[in-house]
């Protein structure tokens, strides 16, 4: 990898000022996407600002309304959290299926959503539960956060501090995963919330998306039969060595039905 200058930030303000003061600085969270990216020389940051020492970016709090996960909380911590398991079990289950145990020990929710990999798991839950992403500057609705492949609503130097997930009446995530990387070939998050039913899809397209036709059908009848005939157009879906677009379109329906059945 190209060389860079490593810094360790003491708090959020320090992290933000260190990135802004550098030419092409980047935040370093768990590093489990960024470091492989650097090894492939796909990025060339001048500086990396490590967030791991910032105590108030760690931890989970729960209330009757939902859970708030601080940005540097690892996938393993979310998966094992009794608070998350009790309040939004689908979120704990999703976190328990990211990567492998070693990846989950280092990878973080903030790093994952800031990167917005098309095959990442968390974006499905952030949109599927109508979460709110809090940064050092503002609150961003989950619906507005993911703007395209590896693109988000974050400005340069803006740092995610936490993600708040409202509790759902029912929710489940079903992933058809790549057996080597455990990334989603297709993953579908289904939630029945106070604001209606949400069906979100990751892995299938360049960016997470909702399937309104399924949401409407499930709002009338929350059963897998209600969506079994809803076809997803293959236009715009990903085609790669793992799966063709028509296969992914088919998998969206299968995964959605399995998620509904798991609710």
């Amino acid at each position: 990898m190209y060389d860079f200058t490593y810094h360790r930030a003491s708090d959020v303000a320090d992290a933000v000022s260190k990135v802004r003061d550098t030419g092409e600085g980047q935040f370093l969270a768990g590093g489990h996407t960024l470091i492989p990216t650097l090894k492939l020389r796909l990025a060339k940051p001048s500086d990396l600002v490590d967030l791991q020492g910032i105590a108030n970016l760690q931890g989970i709090s729960a209330s009757d309304d939902g859970v708030t996960v601080k940005a540097m909380t690892t996938h393993a911590t979310v998966a094992e959290s009794k608070d998350v398991q009790d309040t939004i079990p689908a979120l704990a289950s999703l976190a328990s299926g990211i990567g492998d145990p070693h990846v989950r020990a280092r990878g973080t929710i903030g790093g994952s959503i800031a990167n917005n990999d098309p095959a990442a798991d968390y974006p499905a839950a952030v949109v599927g539960l109508g979460a709110t992403v809090k940064t050092d500057q503002r609150d961003i609705a989950g619906d507005d956060f993911f703007t395209g492949m590896f693109e988000t609503a974050l400005s340069d130097g803006e740092l995610i501090t936490e993600v708040s997930f409202p509790k759902a009446n029912k929710a489940a995530y079903y992933k058809f995963k790549n057996p080597a990387s455990r990334f989603a070939i297709v993953g579908v998050f289904v939630a029945q919330t106070g604001g209606g039913v949400r069906v979100t899809v990751t892995g299938a397209a360049p960016c997470v998306f909702r399937v309104s036709e399924m949401e409407e059908a499930l709002a009338s009848s929350f059963s897998s039969d209600a969506i079994k005939d809803i076809k997803i157009p293959e236009d715009g879906l990903n085609s790669d060595i793992h799966a063709q677009a028509d296969y992914r379109a088919h998998l969206v329906n299968v995964c959605a039905r399995r998620a509904v059945d798991a609710c």
């Binding site: 490593y6 360790r8 370093l28 590093g31 489990h32 470091i35 492989p36 090894k39 990396l48 490590d50 791991q52 393993a76 492998d100 145990p101 070693h102 990846v103 020990a105 280092r106 080597a180 990387s181």
Partner: peptide, 29 residues
């Protein structure tokens, strides 16, 4: 593999098994 998949490089950091090929030396200060 050097791509975070194979686990041949797993060591423990503060008791947790992690991939040492995907961790910077300066991160483990």
């Amino acid at each position: 593999c050097d791509t975070s998949q194979c686990g041949a490089c797993v060591v423990h950091i503060n008791g947790d098994a992690v991939k040492s090929c995907t961790t910077l030396a300066l991160q483990v200060e």
